[in-house]
Nucleic acid binder design. Structure first.
Lengths: 342, 342
DNA sequence: CGCTACATTGAAAAACTTCAACAGAGGTGG
DNA sequence: CCACCTCTGTTGAAGTTTTTCAATGTAGCG
């Protein structure tokens, strides 16, 4: 589908010229000659990207951007300023308001086109990432990775098989096509703490790409699984050759960091009851099902408490009709109570 | 300084041709016509990069690579295979042994040169990153960021000033030029847990670059500090326009993840005594000084325990002559004992 | 049927936190 | 300069939470 670009520019010459360049590059261009007109058109056509002049009659470029950023539907539209103003304070003002990029007049055609393409790609990347709202999600759809890692051999791992161990040298990043994998560490007395459980379409096993650092954790399958092994070199190449993949990976890591930080504060100060409830709720959100299939010891390792303590807590929750349990799974009955525990 | 490239290639024609291309691109090229000869030269000249054929007399390309990877001094040298073999298993074999890239004959000159340049840049990036051995380190030297963020206005923050708060919308990434900053979260009863303490030359305050997510933590200065505010757009642009920055950022995040995971297992299962010792030791490594200046409450929030418990533990360690304390700081006396506690 | 692995319960012990009281440094205002 | 206030650090004792150890139960499998 051709991307729709809205071009808001006061000068007739520049507007027509720029539109011509964009049209040659096969974009569908709508033009406006001031801010007010631009906003009217935008509300109407929902452009995929906006290029806007700054000084204009009626509403100036900053004003247009502010209106965009406040409008639910237009909020995420990439917004590029095009202006002869080159003072630092002007550029910063635009950026602070949430502009995506800033093109200084005069510009080369290639400059314009690469900025446009870049922004459209990021916006696309964003939309693809958006499928689960708000909730942290490690999935990166295979289609996005496919172009880099297609034709790779698929490896089958039986339930319980070890993928890598603490201390192993790390040469790969793994992509889980199907199955379930836990990553965990043991403390010096052998107690296990599960750092993540991965399901379909997750990328895991990151270690430094620049240094040759050993893994600090173990990875074991929890069911029969299929995965791709991507060597660090290939991965590095993919990042270097594809800007959007790099951004996606950075994003994935940042979210994972946020998630781990939340875990930290829970571990530090929450009661066992609260930690257990929290973990169950996370598993529910992550799996999308009321029924959570997990062994008592794995659940205990995930919460970070002794198995016996976990069982006592589950019994408690069961008595309060918040959950039901059987040998193999926990079923959430009262989601609201579970979420608001303690 | 011109980079030294070692080219190991059995075919006279191809060797001379390739060398000529590289020399035109202003590299200093050394050539060898088989593996044994190549290794001799390598030990002698310590090349910055190696390009090697695979099937050769005496020692083949795989063999050369293995020897490189086992040699302390040559270990990190970027190694590119150049071969007409295009079977998947061959490429994978090379990658698994630790090759950096794989160029299939016939190739375009530009293909060769971009692979070479790419690898040299990564190696350079790696060396710059290497300053502290093994230890996790958030510093990215300003010189590396300078090209992207020079001329940015510097902001002064007084001791105790708030930089951002939980729930704030995140528009910036911060670069700490000078000073000290803590990031922390509060649980619902107001207990504080410190997730990081940043010092000079650290990049912090990452949130998703694609989605507009609020901060989940707070950042406050611990002394008068100077920092740069980098808008997310600028940061995204910098990542997109500079491959090596992207790799560095990914690396930074991966290391931070590893570090947080270590913290998790400590929080989950270690005794207060162990956690305290561990935290002190980390602070010592991070600060490079025996004397750790930090308030009792901040130290408690960093370990994740009650202030009183922390004080009792410090008293214990003091009685065992492992540390000394005064009102404002903790001094480590016996590093070995501290590291091996419990 | 008996083995194995996981699940459950009880009771005692250990580890931490909380509350409360007090001490001392450092700053402030009369 | 002193009295006073406030903030941080310290200690004691009681109370709570969690772990540990040990014993028992139970589903599933060859």
């Amino acid at each position: 589908m051709t991307a729709k670009i809205l071009l808001i520019e006061a000068s007739d010459d520049l507007r027509e010229n720029t539109a011509a360049i964009l049209e040659l590059a096969n974009y569908k261009v709508h033009t406006a000659k001031n801010g007010r007109e631009g906003i009217e058109i935008a509300l109407n056509i929902k452009p995929d990207l906006v290029i806007s002049d700054i000084p204009m009659t009626e509403i100036d470029g900053y004003g247009v951007l502010q209106i965009f950023r406040k409008n639910e539907e237009l909020q995420m539209t990439p917004f590029i300023f095009m202006s002869a103003k080159t003072k630092h304070s002007d550029v910063r003002k635009g950026m602070d308001l949430g502009a995506s990029d800033y093109i200084t007049i005069p510009f080369y055609n290639s400059e314009l086109l690469s900025a446009v393409e870049s922004r459209l790609n990021i916006a696309k990347s964003y939309k693809e990432n958006k499928n689960t709202q708000g909730k942290f999600n490690e999935k990166i759809e295979l289609e996005n990775l496919d172009m880099f890692f297609k034709n790779k051999e698929k490896f089958n791992y039986k339930n319980g098989a070890s993928i890598y161990c603490e201390g192993n040298n790390s040469n790969y990043v793994y992509y889980l096509i199907k199955g379930k994998v836990k990553t965990f560490r043991n403390n010096e007395y052998g107690k296990e703490f599960i750092t993540s459980i991965f399901k379909n379409k997750s990328l895991f096993g990151f270690t430094s790409l620049l240094e040759n650092m050993p893994y600090i954790e173990n990875a074991v399958t929890l069911e029969n699984s299929i995965l791709l092994k991507i060597t660090k070199s290939e991965f590095l190449n993919a990042i270097i050759k594809n800007d959007y993949l790099a951004v996606r990976i950075v994003d994935l890591l940042v979210k994972k960091l946020d998630y781990l930080k939340s875990q930290l504060i829970h571990l530090a100060y929450d009661s066992v009851r609260k930690k257990t409830a929290e973990t169950l709720y996370e598993l529910y959100l992550d799996g999308g099902s009321d029924i959570i299939e997990i062994s008592r010891s794995n659940l205990a390792s995930l919460v970070g408490i002794a198995k016996e303590t976990l069982i006592r807590t589950l019994t408690e929750l069961k008595e309060e009709n918040i959950i039901k349990t059987n040998r193999k799974a926990v079923k959430i009955i009262n989601h609201k109570k579970l979420k608001n525990i303690k």
